[in-house]
C-alpha cells in the first residue's frame, strides 16, 4: 500500500517535472528540474543556474564563510533593509503624510489594525538596528584593512551608503508627527542650517519652507519611501558588484 502510494507520488512528480510549465519556469541546469542530490556539480548549479548568481559566486574563500571574520554585518544590513522595505510597505497602506492626519493614522494603526503595532515596532527597531549594523560593518572593514587596493572605491561607496542609511533613518523619524519627531527634526535641521554661505537655502529646501509643517512632512515622506531607497538600491548594486569584481572578500589576515 505504502509503496503503491510512493510509486504514484513519484510518477506524478515525474509528470510535473516533465511538463512544459515546469520546464519553462526552471531553466536547463536548474536543480529544480530533476531534483537535488548532493554533489559538487549540483552545489555549483544551485548558484550558477539561479538568480542568486547575481549576488554570489559559485565558490568563495574558505575563511570568508567564517562567522568570526565578517560577523555577517554586511549581509545583516542588507537583510534589515529588505525587512524594512517589507514592513514599510505595510505601514504605507495606513498612513497619510499630512500634519492633520499623520499622527491619527499612526494611532489608529497601533490600536485598530491587525498586527499594526507589531509591524511598526519591527520597522522602528529594525531601523535603529540597521544604523548600528552598517556602522559596525564599516568598523569591521576598516580593522581588516579591507579598504586597501583594489577595494578603495568600494569603501567610498560604503561611506555613501552609511550616509544614505542615516538620512533614511532621519527622514523616517519625522513621519509619526509626534513631539519626539517634530523636535528631533527641528534640532537636526537647525544644525544643517549652519552650513556656510547657503545655510538658509539648505534649510529651506529641506523643510520645504521656513519652518517645519505639513509641507515638510510630504517632502520627507517622499524622500523616505521613494527617493532615498531608490538611490540606496543603486549604490547597493554597485557595492555588491564591486565586492565580486575586486576579488571577493578581503583577507585572510
Amino acid at each position: 500500500m505504502g509503496t503503491q502510494l510512493g510509486g504514484k507520488a513519484s510518477d506524478l512528480m515525474g509528470q510535473v517535472q516533465g511538463s512544459q510549465a515546469w520546464t519553462s519556469i526552471f531553466r536547463p541546469g536548474s536543480i529544480f528540474r530533476k531534483g537535488y542530490t548532493d554533489s559538487p556539480r549540483n552545489r555549483s548549479y544551485v548558484i550558477m543556474n539561479s538568480v542568486l548568481y547575481h549576488l554570489h559566486p559559485v565558490k568563495v574563500k574558505r575563511h570568508g564563510v567564517r562567522v568570526s571574520y565578517t560577523l555577517c554585518l554586511g549581509g545583516l544590513s542588507f537583510f534589515l533593509f529588505i525587512l524594512l522595505t517589507v514592513t514599510g510597505i505595510f505601514l504605507m497602506f495606513f498612513y497619510r503624510p499630512t500634519a492633520a492626519q499623520a499622527w491619527d493614522d499612526i494611532y489608529i494603526l497601533q490600536t485598530e489594525v491587525a498586527f499594526g503595532l507589531l509591524v511598526r515596532n519591527i520597522h522602528r527597531w529594525g531601523a535603529h538596528l540597521m544604523v548600528l549594523t552598517v556602522f559596525l560593518h564599516m568598523a569591521r572593514v576598516f580593522y581588516h584593512g579591507a579598504y586597501k587596493p583594489p577595494r578603495e572605491f568600494n569603501w567610498v561607496i560604503g561611506v555613501i551608503l552609511l550616509t544614505l542609511t542615516l538620512l533614511l533613518s532621519f527622514t523616517g523619524y519625522l513621519l509619526p508627527w509626534d513631539q519626539l519627531a517634530l523636535w528631533a527634526v527641528t534640532v537636526g535641521t537647525n544644525m544643517m542650517g549652519f552650513t556656510p554661505v547657503f545655510g538658509d537655502q539648505v534649510r529651506f529646501v529641506l523643510l520645504s519652507g521656513v519652518e517645519i509643517g505639513t509641507d515638510t512632512l510630504l517632502r520627507w515622506y517622499v524622500l523616505h519611501v521613494l527617493m532615498l531607497p531608490f538611490v540606496l538600491i543603486i549604490f547597493l548594486a554597485v557595492h555588491f558588484w564591486r565586492v565580486r569584481k575586486d576579488g571577493g572578500i578581503s583577507g585572510p589576515l
Binding site: 559538487p40 552545489r43 555549483s44 544551485v46 548558484i47 542568486l52 554570489h56 559566486p57 559559485v58 565558490k59 568563495v60 574563500k61 574558505r62 570568508g64 564563510v65 562567522v67 555577517c72 549581509g75 545583516l76 537583510f79
Partner: peptide, 16 residues
C-alpha cells in the same frame, strides 16, 4: 575555496 551553497548560504540564512 568552498561552495557558496551550502557553506555560505546556510550561514546567511541562519543569521537572517
Amino acid at each position: 575555496r568552498v561552495h557558496v551553497w551550502p557553506h555560505l548560504l546556510l550561514g546567511e540564512f541562519v543569521a537572517s
